[in-house]
C-alpha cells in the first residue's frame, strides 16, 4: 500500500508552484546560485525521486533536520533511511492537514538561519543546525509565534520517529535499516518460548508486513 502520488491538479497549490520552480532552476541553469551544494542534475534527480509536497528548498531543509534528529553514525542516518520520503508521503495522505504547518515552519526556520548565519538552514554546519533546532524546540526563535516553534519541532520529531520505525510500507525505514539498527526484527505471527525467555540478543530474520 505505497502511497500513490495524485495527479498534479489535485496537489495543493504551493506544491504545483514548487514543481514549476524546480523546472525553472534545472532548465535555466541557475542552480549554482543556490547556497547549498547541489547541482542541477542533483535537483533533477531529486525531482525524479519526486517529493509530492516539499519543493526543493523545503526538501533540503527537511532532509537536514531529520538527519540532525537521527544522524548517520555506524548505522545509517534518517535521510538514508528514507525519513523525508515517509514524511512527504504522510503529508500527501494521512497528515494532509499538516501541510501548511510544514510549509510555514520550514520557511520560518530558514528565515532564522538567514538572520543568524546569513544562509539557509540546509547550508549550515551540523553543529549550527543542531543549535538552531534546539532554539526552535525551546521556543527561542522570533520567527515563530509563541509556542509554535516547539510545536513544529515536536511534529517533525514525531514524524521522524514514524519514518524510522513504522513498517517500510509507508515509505520510510528503507530496507528496515532503522529496525536493524535498534535490534527490532519486525512483525511475526508467532514468537517461541525460547526466544521470549532469552536474555541475549535474538537472531531472527528481518521481515516487514509484506513478508508475513
Amino acid at each position: 500500500m505505497t502511497t500513490q502520488q495524485p495527479p498534479t491538479s489535485q496537489r495543493p497549490p504551493w506544491t504545483q508552484l514548487s514543481r514549476r520552480g524546480v523546472l525553472r532552476i534545472g532548465v535555466g541553469g541557475t542552480a549554482a546560485a543556490i547556497a547549498y551544494h547541489a547541482s542541477a542534475l542533483d535537483l533533477l534527480a531529486q525531482e525524479q525521486q519526486g517529493y509530492a509536497v516539499f519543493n526543493v528548498t523545503d526538501g533540503r531543509t527537511i532532509e537536514a533536520i531529520v538527519e540532525r534528529i537521527w544522524p548517520e553514525s555506524d548505522t545509517p542516518g534518517a535521510v538514508e533511511i528514507g525519513v523525508p520520503r515517509y514524511i512527504d508521503n504522510a503529508l500527501i495522505g494521512a497528515y494532509q492537514h499538516k501541510q501548511l504547518d510544514y510549509h510555514k515552519g520550514l520557511r520560518n526556520l530558514d528565515a532564522a538561519a538567514r538572520r543568524m548565519h546569513g544562509t539557509v538552514f540546509a547550508a549550515l554546519e551540523p553543529d549550527q543546525q543542531t543549535a538552531l533546532l534546539e532554539s526552535m524546540e525551546n521556543d527561542e526563535l522570533d520567527e515563530f509565534d509563541e509556542g509554535e516553534g516547539s510545536e513544529f519541532f515536536s511534529t517533525i520529531h514525531q514524524h521522524t520517529m514514524e519514518g524510522l520505525f513504522a513498517d517500510p510500507i509507508y515509505g520510510g525505514n528503507k530496507d528496515m535499516a532503522a529496525w536493524r539498527a535498534v535490534g527490532y526484527p519486525g512483525p511475526f505471527y508467532a514468537i517461541s518460548e525460547q526466544s521470549q525467555q532469552s536474555f541475549e540478543p535474538l537472531d531472527l530474520p528481518m521481515q516487514s508486513i509484506t513478508d508475513l
Binding site: I69, W70, T160, F165
Partner: peptide
Amino acid sequence: PLQTFGDHPDDIRGWGAEYKDYFTENL
C-alpha cells in the same frame, strides 16, 4: 520501537547523536 522512543533517561535529549546511541543500545 515506535511506542517507546519517547521514554529515555532525563539527562539525554530525545534526539541527536547521543540519543541515537542510547536508543540503539537500549531498546
